[in-house]
Design a protein around this nucleic acid. Structure first.
Lengths: 144, 144
DNA sequence: CCTTTTTTGTTAGCTTACTAACATTATAAA
DNA sequence: TTTATAATGTTAGTAAGCTAACAAAAAAGG
């Protein structure tokens, strides 16, 4: 009847994944991007192909709070990775627009992410991974 | 061939779990404990039944860095949840010692954790949970 | 014994998370 | 129309994660 501390286990793997991602270099000379910045660049790049992307979309996509979105985007804007343009349609919304610099990094960042996930999933079958992902989705529903 | 952003999914669920745990009240009047503080109280309480617990043990157990352990414990000590006693055997080690206040909270915290995990796993069979946990363990090996 | 390496813990500075309280704009209701 | 409610974003303050650089004690090697 020993209870596996599943929450702790989840947190461990999540932390280790971010830590690993953080160690993958992007630029040759020093400067780097954080894991969250990389993920945001990828999702904004992909989604903005077909639609406008606003801050609220990140909130839902990553399951994080508004204030967290604000903070991360402020840093990214300061580093010249994106700009936030107020919507003319709806004064509450701010559209996210990647800079050329960020767009240029998209391909390599996406590859880094895929490699990191490949490492994470080493030795697991496609079916196992799909099953695992489905359980995560179920848990997300349960706890939201 | 669509790649599921597994890392992002992991982070979402992990964050949501912590957020949920953070909302479970402990005291009747205002003050509360953070998710990490709760987990540390539980693990130190349990492990110290049979052995001395040092800071390095938390580092391994939670897969976090030394500096993180230091920071969390400093706060917990400031709040009177534990004390760090330098080992007489080995001058590098600091033994962790829960206060009476923290020990008194152990039972209810453990129950909170179990309820939170039960919510997380709602609708999943024992076998599914075991399989999920095994995959997490495998991933932890892969990426460490 | 002396020197080097390993282990453990701290500090400083940063990022990402949270809550709570607030401001602003849209939408709904009266 | 006017008022109330909902949706979106910000700020302030705090916790927990990280890296890098440091200090001190123990262990290993000479």
């Amino acid at each position: 009847m020993e209870q596996v501390p599943l929450g702790k286990q989840l947190k461990s793997v999540s932390n280790l994944f971010s830590r690993h991602l953080n160690q993958i270099p992007l630029y040759h000379e020093g400067e780097n991007l954080t894991p969250m910045q990389r993920m945001i660049i990828v999702v904004v790049h992909e989604k903005s192909q077909t639609q406008d992307v606003f801050q609220r979309d990140l909130e839902k996509f990553f399951s994080i709070r508004r204030s967290t979105v604000t903070g991360v985007l402020q840093l990214m804007e300061k580093r010249g990775l994106l700009v936030r343009e107020p919507s003319t349609q709806d004064g509450r919304l701010k559209r996210l627009c990647l800079t050329d610099q960020a767009n240029a990094l998209f391909a390599i960042i996406q590859q880094n992410l895929q490699e990191a996930e490949a490492l994470l999933c080493q030795g697991l079958t496609k079916e196992e991974i799909a099953f695992f992902s489905a359980i995560l989705a179920k848990m997300e529903q349960n706890i939201r």
